[in-house]
Nucleic acid binder design. Sequence first.
DNA 1: CATCAGATTTACATTGTAGAAGAAATAGGG
DNA 2: CCCTATTTCTTCTACAATGTAAATCTGATG
Lengths: 109, 109
Amino acid sequence: MGRNTLGTLEQAVMMVILALGDGAYGVAIRDELSRRTRREHTLGAVYTTLDRLSAKELLESYLGEPTPTRGGRAKRYFKLTGEGRQALDHAVNTRHELEYGLGLAGKGA
Amino acid sequence: MGRNTLGTLEQAVMMVILALGDGAYGVAIRDELSRRTRREHTLGAVYTTLDRLSAKELLESYLGEPTPTRGGRAKRYFKLTGEGRQALDHAVNTRHELEYGLGLAGKGA
DNA sequence: CATCAGATTTACATTGTAGAAGAAATAGGG
DNA sequence: CCCTATTTCTTCTACAATGTAAATCTGATG
């Protein structure tokens, strides 16, 4: 059972997917990621990450219907797999374990 | 002003240094990191990270006295710089921003 | 001088990031 | 209708930064 370590961006992308629920496709993910992160991200960066997470079977995807808007082609939606959810939970737990006792709670936005 | 993004391990190491206060030198950092992370880390991995963070001036180091124990040579102690502290706080805030609203609080150890 | 604690080096795997190129859809003029 | 310009979304390619392990180096001590 390979240890599934997650990078910073990988975790971020997974969290954004959770936040978006249905409706988590490339562009939306990129936008929400940039918003929450207060920093621009390119689509290429996002898709590369999505692909890698999919390859590790931490994400799965399915195609939606084309939308009737100018250029609106079929979107590929992403969601966490059980394994993905587990890996993310683990990462979050580890982080809490690390933060424990230090006084570095973030002052709200 | 270069964006100072921190990797997962970089953040972890910085947090461990905070946790150790004085007494944060290579071996101790490695051990505490392994403990909090529930996972073994090699010294090489740790020192590489320490070096890189130092190069980015997020950490600074100073030499202590040799200890009178078998083979106990002078240790190199590490601490966060102001910039380092800032970068870590920023990383933590970003993470909270990402976690916000999702129900993935870690169940305690 | 054998051995131990600690540090450094080296090499390679995995992630992060950007930019360019590709593909499917629709609007509108002819 | 039917081209094709344009919009939206995806894929590919290439390179930079981080993660990780193993071997080597150093200075101390018994």
